[in-house]
Design a protein around this nucleic acid. Structure first.
Lengths: 339, 339
DNA sequence: GACCCTAGAGTGAACGTTCACATAATGTCA
DNA sequence: TGACATTATGTGAACGTTCACTCTAGGGTC
C-alpha cells in the first residue's frame, strides 16, 4: 500500500558531465557562469542540465565552499504579524539575490537562546536575522565572535559589536506618541508591555518612560502581559486600570495587546478615546477593523526586511562591522480613532 | 572597521576524535547512540564534545545519509495567519522529533510552482509540507514520483497518489454554514473567493456551490478578490453587492476578506447582520475585535500541524501512501455577531 | 588447546560538489 | 621559429560525515 521510490536518485553533476561528454569541472563552471567555457560547450552542457532537470546539491556545494546562499531567521513566535510580514519581505529580497531562508522559532526552553542559533549554524547558513528575543547582548557578541557569523537584528536598537541592528527610533517614536497624547489632553499614561520586559527589551520601555517623564512629568505605570495576545492584553489592561483608575491613555507594546486593551476598556464601560486613549505598535492591517480603528506606531516591516537583507549581504562580503552598527527607522504614527 | 573572524572554523568530528584519543567512527557512534561503545570511552568523548562545543555538520551528514531531519514548508504567502499558526505548530511538533523547518514562499513568477519545490529539495529536505497553491494535482503527483519525496498537503482535500492531504471537511463545513444562514432567514448568498479560484482551489467553492444549491436552490454569485487582503475583500464585496443587491449573506474564503466585506457593507450603509450576514473561514484571533465579531469556520491550525507532522514521519518511515490519503477535519462553526 | 563468538574499535570509500593546479591547444610577437 | 600568453578543459584532493567492512582482544565451550 506504500510506495518506495523506484530510483529517486537525483542526477548529479557527473551524470551531466558524462552525458555532455565533458568533465565535472566544466559542468561546475557552467553552473557558476565561469567565463572560460566555450560557448558551444556551454550550450551542450546547458541542454543536458535542462534534459535531466539537474539542480546542484546545495549541501555538497556548501560543504566545500562554506557558503550556502542561505540565511537563518529566528524569532520567538512566528505567529506575530510584524514578524510574518518582515519574513515575507526577507523572502522576497532573498529570492532576488538567489538566497534562501531557514526559519526557526527560538526554543523557549533553551537555556539562553543561543542554542537555537548554534543549531541554525549546522545548516551552514551564511548569516542569521534575529528578531527580539531574550538573548543578551553579551551572549550575542560572543556568539558572533566565536562563530564568525553574520548577525542582523531587527527590532532591538542596541549597539552590539559585530552585529547590525535595524530598529525603530524608539525615543523619537515615544516622543511622537506622547506629543500626540498630550495634544489630545491626556495626562496619565499606562504602559502595556510584553513578556520580554523587564529582562531585555529595555529600549521601548525606556524611551516611553523618559518621554512620559519629560512630557507630563508623571511616574510611569507599567503592566506586563504574560503573552502578546488579545486576551492577555485585555487582562493586563484591566489590571492596569485597577491599579490606577485615573489612567486616561494606554500605550501597548504591540497592536495585538492594544486590541486587548480596547476590549478591557469596553468591559469596564470606558469610552475610547474619550475616557481612555489607546496606542499600539506595528501597524498591522487588522488595526483598521477595530471600532474605533486603532492608532498605531507603524513599523515598516517590508523596508526593514530589505534593509536587513542588504546589511546581511554587506556583512557577508565585507565582514561584520566591528563596532556594531545601528540603523534607526523614523517613527510614523498612524493616527486613527483610538486617540 | 570590519572584522574578519580569526578562526571561525567550527570543530569537526576529527578534532573531537584526536582530543579524545579515538577514531572518527567512535565519535560518530557516540553521536548516534550506538550501543557498542565502552561507557568509559563514551564519557571521554562526550566530555570533549562538550568542551569544544562541537555540533555535527548537518550537511556533511545529510550528504551521506540522504536524510537531513529537516523538512520544507511552502506557502504562497507567509503573511497569512492560518499559515503562520500552522507553521508555528509544525515547528513545535518538529522540534520534539528533532526536526527542523526550511520555510519558503512559493515564487509567483515560477511557471508552475514546481520549481520552488524542486529548489527545496536541494536542501536535502526529507519531505515537504505544502499549503494551498496553484500547483496542479497532476504536477504534484509526478513531482512526488520523480523525486521520491514525501509530500503532505494542508488545506486541499484532494486525493492525489503519493500525497497525504490534511484538510477541512469542506462539504460538511459548507453545509454547516448554509444551515446556519438559512436558520437566520438568509436566502441569497454571495461568495467572496481568493485569487486561486477558479484555477485550483475548487473544493471550497464546489462545496459551497453545492450546499447553496441544495439548501436554498439558488444560483451562486461568486466574486474574486485579487489578493486576500482586507482592502481587496472590501472592493470585491462591493462589486458583489453591485451585481446583485438582493444578497443578504456573504461567505468569504477567509477571515481577512470577510473583514473587508464588513467594511464594504459599512461603506454601503448596510447593517450587519440584519441586512447582510457575513461568514469567514480560519478563525483567526482578530475576528473577535471587529464590530460585530466575525462568525467564522474555524480551522484547527495547531491540530492540523500536528497531524501533518505525524503524517510526514509515517511517510518517511513507511513510504508515501500509494493511493493518496485524505484526512478530513470536522467543521467547527464559531457563531458570533456577523450572522 | 582449538574453536567460535562478541564487544569494542579502526580504516577506506563514498556522498556531490568546488578548489587549486596541471595540461593541451591555439594565438602572438620579436 | 622559438618563447610566451591565453583560452579551454581535465585531474586529484578536499569539505565533514557515515557506511560497510576489517581487525583485535578477551571469553566461553567442547
Amino acid at each position: 500500500m506504500t510506495q518506495r521510490p523506484s530510483d529517486p536518485r537525483r542526477p548529479t553533476i557527473i551524470d551531466v558531465a558524462e552525458l555532455a561528454g565533458v568533465s565535472r569541472q566544466t559542468v561546475s563552471r557552467v553552473l557558476s557562469d565561469h567565463p572560460r567555457v566555450a560557448s558551444q560547450t556551454r550550450a551542450r552542457v546547458e541542454k543536458v542540465i535542462e534534459e535531466l532537470d539537474f539542480r546542484p546539491n546545495r549541501m555538497a556545494r556548501a560543504l566545500v565552499t562554506k557558503t550556502s546562499l542561505t540565511f537563518g531567521v529566528a524569532s520567538v513566535d512566528m505567529r506575530n504579524l510584524h514578524f510574518a510580514e518582515t519574513c515575507s519581505g526577507l523572502q522576497t529580497a532573498a529570492r532576488v539575490g538567489g538566497y534562501h531562508l531557514v526559519v526557526t522559532e527560538l526554543d523557549r526552553d533553551d537555556d539562553d537562546g543561543i542554542g537555537t542559533l548554534e543549531t541554525l549554524l549546522t545548516f551552514g547558513v551564511d548569516g542569521i536575522v534575529l528578531f527580539p528575543s531574550m538573548v543578551s547582548g553579551a551572549d550575542l557578541e560572543s556568539f558572533v565572535k566565536r562563530n564568525g557569523c553574520c548577525l542582523v537584528m531587527i527590532g532591538r536598537g542596541a549597539k552590539i559589536p559585530g552585529v547590525v541592528s535595524i530598529a525603530l527610533d524608539e525615543p523619537g517614536a515615544a516622543r511622537a506618541i506622547l506629543g500626540h497624547l498630550t495634544e489630545r489632553g491626556k495626562s496619565r499614561v499606562g504602559l502595556l508591555m510584553n513578556e520580554m520586559f523587564p529582562r531585555f527589551i529595555h529600549t521601548r520601555y525606556e524611551a516611553l518612560h523618559r518621554a512620559i517623564e519629560e512630557t507630563i512629568g508623571q511616574f510611569t505605570i507599567p503592566v506586563e502581559a504574560a503573552r502578546p495576545t488579545i486576551e492577555q492584553g485585555r487582562q493586563a489592561a484591566m489590571r492596569l486600570l485597577a491599579i490606577d483608575d485615573d489612567v486616561d491613555a494606554i500605550v501597548a507594546f504591540n497592536d495585538t495587546m492594544a486590541m486587548g486593551a480596547m476590549k478591557g476598556c469596553h468591559d469596564l464601560g470606558l469610552r475610547i478615546p474619550e475616557d481612555v486613549a489607546i496606542v499600539g505598535y506595528d501597524g498591522i492591517a487588522y488595526g483598521e477593523v477595530t471600532v474605533p480603528p486603532l492608532t498605531t506606531m507603524v513599523q515598516d516591516s517590508f523596508g526593514m526586511a530589505e534593509a536587513a537583507f542588504e546589511a546581511m549581504l554587506t556583512s557577508i562580503k565585507e565582514g561584520s562591522p566591528r563596532e556594531g552598527e545601528v540603523q534607526l527607522w523614523p517613527p510614523q504614527l498612524l493616527i486613527r480613532g483610538t486617540t
